[in-house]
């Protein structure tokens, strides 16, 4: 009884959240509803006795994916109203596809009948938790697929680096030999100041004479953006 009540509780909230995700006007709210939906789905998994999947759902989807969504929504300046523009025009097409999929689901579930001779999957005994059971499977029987999935992730990582890492030659990186070769005389200058003269009267702060604009690789000076005007003061 209590199981059923919790099931219906989680399921109702899940469906409501899913509706809010697509209908919420504010994209940040939509992502927050998505997160709430994930939590409820995790609850459903717990009721079904799949505690590993429930935890993975929370860790991966809530902890990583949804937060990433949130970052994207908040950081990128996407005009969501513009994205919504074609909604009325495309709604009939979307609805038609949705109805077709729903009809298929009803059709298949309504006549749910397995191929004859299919064995019911055997559950591991109560002495094995399903985390352990899954672990045994993926590290023994399905080790090839598990490693191949690892390669898929590696390729994704290479892709992210290849497509976004830009080697900027004008970047100012640490140049250790240059730092070691520095002498006090290069960087410090003793000046005799008149009494009462302020920084302004002396022409502003003095910038380092050299080494200030040193870059990782020698670059064409013309390619550099123009210095800001205040940097000229020390020159």
């Amino acid at each position: 009884m209590i199981t059923q009540i919790t099931f219906y509780l989680f399921a109702t909230i899940l469906v409501l959240c899913a509706g809010m995700v697509v209908s919420a006007r504010n994209p940040v709210h939509a992502v927050l509803f998505l997160i709430l939906g994930f939590f409820n789905a995790a609850g459903l998994f717990l009721i079904a006795g799949a505690e590993f999947l429930a935890m993975i759902l929370v860790i991966v989807y809530v902890g990583a994916v949804a937060v990433l969504f949130l970052f994207v929504v908040m950081m990128l300046d996407v005009n969501f109203n513009q994205l919504r523009e074609g909604l009325q025009r495309y709604a009939p097409v979307g609805a038609a596809i949705g109805v077709a999929l729903l009809a298929e689901l009803i059709f298949t579930v309504g006549r749910l009948k397995l191929v004859p001779g299919v064995q019911e999957p055997t559950l591991p005994g109560p002495q094995i938790s399903n985390t352990e059971a899954l672990g045994r499977l993926i590290y023994t029987d399905y080790v090839l697929l598990f490693q191949a999935c690892g390669l898929v992730l590696l390729v994704a990582m290479i892709g992210a680096i290849v497509l976004t890492l830009r080697d900027r030659p004008s970047a100012r990186r640490q140049n250790i030999s240059l730092q070691h070769a520095r002498l006090p005389a290069d960087t410090m200058e003793m000046m005799q100041l008149e009494v009462g003269a302020g920084t302004d009267a002396l022409g502003g702060f003095i910038r380092p004479r050299d080494g200030y604009g040193a870059t990782a690789e020698p670059i064409d000076a013309r390619a550099l953006p123009a210095r800001r005007s205040d940097e000229k003061l020390g020159a």
Binding site: T108, R111, L114, P116
Partner: peptide, 26 residues
């Protein structure tokens, strides 16, 4: 519908002359 993802198992399950569930064809 077939209860297995192995090709051998699928082949054995489908080789019976019994009618095939529509969901499987989909």
């Amino acid at each position: 519908f077939a209860g297995t993802m192995e090709y051998g198992g699928l082949r054995a399950a489908l080789s019976d002359n019994a009618p095939v569930p529509a969901g499987l064809v989909i």
